[in-house]
Amino acid sequence: MRLALLLLCAAAALGGCSVYPLSEASQTQSSSTPAPTTTTTTSLTLPPRPREIPLDKVNPCTILTKDQRAQLSLDTTPSPYTDTTLKARACTMRGTYSGQVARLALVTNEGAELWISDEAQNTAKVIAVIGFPALEVRTPGLDTLCNVEVDLAQGQFLDVLFRDGGTAKPLAQDDLCLGAQRVAEAAVTSLSAGH
């Protein structure tokens, strides 16, 4: 339930998203009750990282270069903030013409395994982002966004949220997940180069 709330709060923090209340059944679900089988992700494990990229001293708004942001159609000035739900330094940016929004959050107090824990109420699949283990995460009921979680260091991960910012023809969630992966790839490329 904690992860569902994390995603709801992250989506709300980006603005322009509706936050749907949890159903009565999920509000009364105790932490000892297993998650529904449609959202259980406990069988997943992350492969080892090729190396460590610590995030403690990284500014989330300077990870993507101006050229990278232009290639991703994210042309507004990056806006820093603190994501209180993830307890992470974060940065959001938008595409003026594309209407798409990306958020980068640097989580340094918990590993990416959070998203595949027993409490995770999402669907996740293991992917690779520039050789680093990662998760593509979808939350039931929130089909206007997609997250990619990149395991970069022990107890630290890059959270990329990509969403539709209100385009005339909303993007399918598969396309949003591809967008999140493209942003994650650009970010890891930049972090690997020492930006």
Rank of each mutant, 00 (worst) to 15 (best):
T76N: 08
N109V: 09
T92I: 12
S26N: 12
L6C: 00
G16I: 03
E113D: 15
S192Y: 00
D159E: 07
V101N: 07
Q29M: 13
V148E: 02
E52Q: 15
D56G: 09
E24N: 12
A180P: 06
A88V: 06
C146K: 06
V160T: 10
I63W: 04
I53D: 04
A112I: 00
P60A: 11
L3S: 08
A88G: 10
V129E: 02
Y20G: 00
F157H: 15
D151T: 01
A120R: 06
F157R: 01
A187C: 09
A168G: 02
W115R: 08
Q27I: 06
T167F: 06
L6A: 11
L6G: 01
V150A: 04
K169W: 00
I127P: 02
A168N: 11
Q121C: 00
Q173G: 05
S73Y: 09
I130Y: 07
D174I: 03
A13K: 06
R69F: 06
A153T: 01
R2M: 09
L86S: 14
G16M: 05
A124D: 09
A193V: 01
R49D: 06
Q181K: 15
T28L: 14
L152K: 01
L6D: 07
S192Q: 14
V150D: 02
S117M: 07
L106F: 04
P47M: 10
A120F: 04
P170F: 10
I127K: 08
A102P: 05
G155I: 01
R163F: 03
D175S: 14
S18Y: 05
Q29A: 15
K57N: 15
K66F: 04
R138T: 14
G155D: 13
Q173E: 13
P34N: 06
A105D: 04
T42R: 13
A4D: 12
I53N: 05
T40Y: 04
Q156C: 05
A120I: 03
N109R: 12
G179W: 06
L55C: 08
P133A: 05
E113H: 07
D75N: 15
V188S: 03
D83I: 02
E24T: 11
E185Q: 14
Q71A: 15
A180D: 06
E24D: 15
M93N: 12
Q156S: 05
D56E: 14
A172V: 08
L106W: 01
S98F: 13
L14R: 13
N147Y: 11
A180W: 06
V160P: 03
K169A: 13
V129M: 04
L7V: 06
A186G: 00
Y81K: 08
L104Y: 03
L161A: 13
K66L: 10
R163N: 10
Q173W: 03
Q121S: 08
R89M: 07
A186M: 03
V101R: 08
L7G: 14
Q68D: 13
S31E: 09
T33K: 14
A128R: 13
D151C: 02
L142W: 02
G15P: 08
L161V: 13
V160Q: 03
V129D: 03
T41A: 15
T108N: 13
A12D: 12
D56R: 15
V126H: 04
L171S: 15
L6Y: 12
R163Y: 03
